[in-house]
Measured scan of single mutants.
Amino acid sequence: MATVKFKYKGEEKEVDISKIKKVWRVGKMISFTWDEGGGKTGRGAVSEKDAPKELLQMLEKQ
């Protein structure tokens, strides 16, 4: 499965696309949330040019 790689608060992170729940556009950035388990929700953002095609497809479906 595809993953999204991004930096959050200076830390490199990687999230499996299948865990992503919500995707939206903020200017030229793609923001998203995912389920971290245990009732926690993670947040992240990646530039439109660095976003994997699967993430962009999720954005178009909404």
Rank of each mutant, 00 (worst) to 15 (best):
D50M: 09
A51E: 02
V4W: 01
V46L: 07
G39K: 05
S18H: 13
E48D: 11
K28L: 05
V15I: 14
A45D: 15
F6N: 00
G44H: 10
V23A: 11
L55N: 00
G42Q: 14
R25L: 11
K28A: 09
V23S: 04
A2Y: 04
K7H: 15
E48L: 07
K7L: 15
M58H: 04
M58A: 08
S31G: 06
W24H: 08
F6S: 02
E60M: 04
E14W: 03
E11Q: 05
G37N: 09
G27W: 02
G37Q: 12
M1Q: 13
K40E: 11
K28G: 15
E36W: 10
E12A: 10
Y8P: 01
R25Q: 12
K61Q: 08
R43T: 14
E60A: 02
T3C: 04
K5H: 04
K61I: 12
S31Q: 12
K49M: 09
K13R: 11
T41R: 08
W24K: 05
Q62F: 05
K19E: 15
E14Y: 06
Y8G: 01
S18Y: 07
I20K: 00
S47P: 10
V15N: 00
W24A: 05
K28S: 06
K53S: 07
Q62W: 04
D50K: 06
G38I: 10
E36V: 12
E11C: 14
E48T: 05
R43V: 10
K7W: 13
E36P: 13
K61A: 05
K53N: 13
K21D: 09
K19V: 13
E48F: 04
K53F: 14
Q62K: 01
F32S: 01
T33C: 11
S47C: 14
D50L: 08
Q57G: 06
I17K: 02
M29H: 06
P52K: 02
K7Q: 14
G42M: 07
K40R: 05
L56R: 05
K7I: 11
K49Q: 15
E36S: 05
V15C: 06
G44W: 12
L55P: 00
K61V: 13
K49Y: 13
T3E: 02
M29W: 06
P52D: 04
W34R: 00
K49H: 02
I30C: 07
D35L: 14
G10Y: 02
K13S: 03
K28M: 08
K13G: 02
Q57K: 10
S31M: 05
K5I: 06
Q62D: 15
T41S: 14
G38A: 12
K19I: 13
K21H: 14
W34I: 02
M29F: 10
E11F: 11
E12W: 09
V26D: 09
Y8T: 05
G39V: 13
E54W: 13
F32I: 08
T33M: 10
V4L: 04
G10I: 01
V4H: 00
V23R: 01
K53E: 11
I20H: 00
K22L: 10
V23Y: 05
G27R: 05
V26Q: 12
T33V: 11
M58I: 07
A45I: 11
K13V: 09
V23P: 03
D35V: 07
V15S: 01
G10K: 03
K21M: 14
Q57H: 06
M29A: 14
V26I: 08
M29L: 11
V4P: 00
V46Q: 02
M58P: 01
D16T: 09
A45K: 15
I17V: 14
K49V: 09
E54H: 05
E11G: 09
I17L: 09
E14N: 06
K9P: 01
L59V: 08
K21T: 10
Q57W: 07
V15F: 01
V46Y: 01
Q62C: 14
